[in-house]
Computed example of a mutant assay.
Amino acid sequence: MNEQVEAVLLAPAEIAESEEKNPLLVALGDRVRNLRAQRGLTRKAVAKTAGVSERHLANLEYGTGNASILVLQQVATALHCPLAELVGDFTTSSPEWLLIRELLEHRDEADLRRVRVAIGELLGTAGVDAARHRRIALVGLRGAGKSTLGQMLADELELPFVELSREVEKLAGCSVREIHDLYGTNAYRRYERRALEEAIQIYGEVVIATPGGIVSDPATFNELLAHCTTVWLQAAPEEHMGRVVAQGDTRPMAASKEAMQDLKRILDGRAAFYSKADLTIDTHGQTLQQSFDALRSAVLPVVGAQNGT
């Protein structure tokens, strides 16, 4: 068989096993795949937005596609990130960036977290909100129980309850699905940021159930971490899927034949961001009441400490 024809017929994974790949292309593919997972987007959705074929994008993700700079720019736009972030070179943009990178290189996650918080305090973007401990924000993948447990917690604490996705719909004047279909993911993220900013401005005390993808935009997630006590509601992938299906909604995996694999990839891509939450509650194998008891036990000391009780 002609080598070119055979390469076309091979699946991306088979190509990956049949030839030695360039380390630069492999690293680029990993970044594309991870960014897509963090944003909860299917390969089909990114390919459509970027204006490239799914096969082309798959080859790029597997490190076998030598994409042009213009295609990379299209993919970066579809993933709502700068091209510099996609190619992994954004910290070479100035001498100060280089000096900062040198100080942070090889630091562990604990050190980097302390630096992030300290920078936020220095710049006045974090750690200065006195109401932070009275705003409780629940984060996690869809199906984690944020809406149900959030409403229960708000009732317990006698606080307002805000479901951020509903606020996004109010701002846009249409459903979340319609926002994505009509205007795209980037537009949805802008509405999400506005909805969060308005909730923070309006409520000094509140329980907020956030959309699963709120961690996809670093600026929005920084805003959340700065102004709210965040709680990550963890669950097993199978539990997430079961709850979402029970709700009659499998977005964004609705058209995928590999829904569970997609969900696991999204969870893996976002877990490192969810883990930045102040508190973590594992609801795996727990009843609703057990999950709520664990959430209440974790949150009450935080709220009580702020009130001096």
Rank of each mutant, 00 (worst) to 15 (best):
residue 191 Y to P: 02
residue 169 E to N: 03
residue 182 L to Q: 10
residue 190 R to P: 00
residue 159 L to V: 15
residue 162 V to F: 08
residue 138 L to I: 12
residue 134 R to D: 15
residue 200 I to Y: 02
residue 166 R to C: 06
residue 192 E to Q: 03
residue 165 S to K: 01
residue 148 T to I: 05
residue 152 M to R: 14
residue 202 I to W: 02
residue 163 E to I: 07
residue 154 A to K: 09
residue 184 G to A: 04
residue 163 E to T: 05
residue 166 R to P: 00
residue 143 G to M: 10
residue 132 R to K: 13
residue 158 E to M: 09
residue 179 I to L: 00
residue 155 D to M: 04
residue 142 R to V: 06
residue 140 G to M: 02
residue 138 L to H: 10
residue 169 E to D: 02
residue 187 A to K: 06
residue 170 K to G: 13
residue 195 A to W: 02
residue 130 A to F: 04
residue 197 E to Q: 11
residue 154 A to E: 13
residue 135 R to P: 13
residue 194 R to Q: 15
residue 138 L to M: 12
residue 133 H to I: 09
residue 140 G to D: 06
residue 158 E to Y: 06
residue 150 G to I: 05
residue 179 I to A: 01
residue 159 L to C: 10
residue 177 R to K: 07
residue 145 G to L: 03
residue 148 T to A: 11
residue 166 R to W: 05
residue 147 S to N: 14
residue 141 L to S: 13
residue 149 L to S: 09
residue 169 E to V: 02
residue 131 A to T: 12
residue 161 F to T: 09
residue 185 T to M: 01
residue 174 C to H: 11
residue 182 L to R: 07
residue 198 E to I: 06
residue 132 R to L: 10
residue 194 R to V: 07
residue 144 A to E: 03
residue 133 H to D: 15
residue 199 A to H: 01
residue 173 G to N: 14
residue 179 I to C: 00
residue 160 P to D: 04
residue 142 R to N: 12
residue 187 A to P: 05
residue 193 R to N: 13
residue 137 A to Y: 04
residue 164 L to G: 10
residue 170 K to F: 12
residue 150 G to R: 01
residue 145 G to Q: 00
residue 145 G to H: 01
residue 186 N to D: 15
residue 200 I to H: 06
residue 172 A to T: 12
residue 133 H to T: 15
residue 144 A to K: 00
residue 141 L to W: 12
residue 176 V to Q: 05
residue 189 R to A: 09
residue 181 D to V: 10
residue 159 L to K: 14
residue 187 A to N: 09
residue 165 S to M: 03
residue 175 S to N: 04
residue 190 R to E: 07
residue 199 A to I: 02
residue 166 R to M: 04
residue 158 E to A: 14
residue 184 G to Q: 01
residue 184 G to H: 00
residue 183 Y to K: 02
residue 189 R to I: 08
residue 159 L to Y: 15
residue 131 A to H: 12
residue 148 T to H: 10
residue 157 L to W: 14
residue 163 E to P: 08
residue 193 R to T: 14
residue 134 R to Q: 13
residue 146 K to T: 09
residue 190 R to F: 05
residue 196 L to F: 02
residue 174 C to F: 04
residue 149 L to C: 08
residue 189 R to D: 11
residue 185 T to P: 01
residue 132 R to Q: 11
residue 178 E to S: 15
residue 181 D to I: 08
residue 162 V to M: 07
residue 199 A to L: 04
residue 167 E to Q: 14
residue 177 R to T: 11
residue 194 R to A: 13
residue 140 G to F: 07
residue 165 S to D: 14
residue 172 A to E: 07
residue 174 C to A: 11
residue 174 C to Q: 13
residue 195 A to N: 02
residue 189 R to M: 12
residue 190 R to K: 10
residue 146 K to E: 09
residue 169 E to T: 05
residue 141 L to I: 15
residue 164 L to E: 08
residue 182 L to Y: 08
residue 187 A to I: 14
residue 144 A to L: 01
residue 130 A to D: 07
residue 175 S to P: 09
residue 145 G to C: 05
residue 182 L to M: 07
residue 146 K to R: 10
residue 191 Y to W: 06
residue 136 I to S: 11
residue 175 S to D: 07
residue 161 F to Y: 15
residue 203 Y to V: 03
residue 139 V to G: 08
residue 152 M to G: 10
residue 202 I to L: 03
residue 179 I to N: 00
residue 156 E to L: 09
residue 173 G to F: 05
residue 198 E to N: 08
residue 152 M to Y: 13
residue 202 I to R: 06
residue 169 E to W: 00
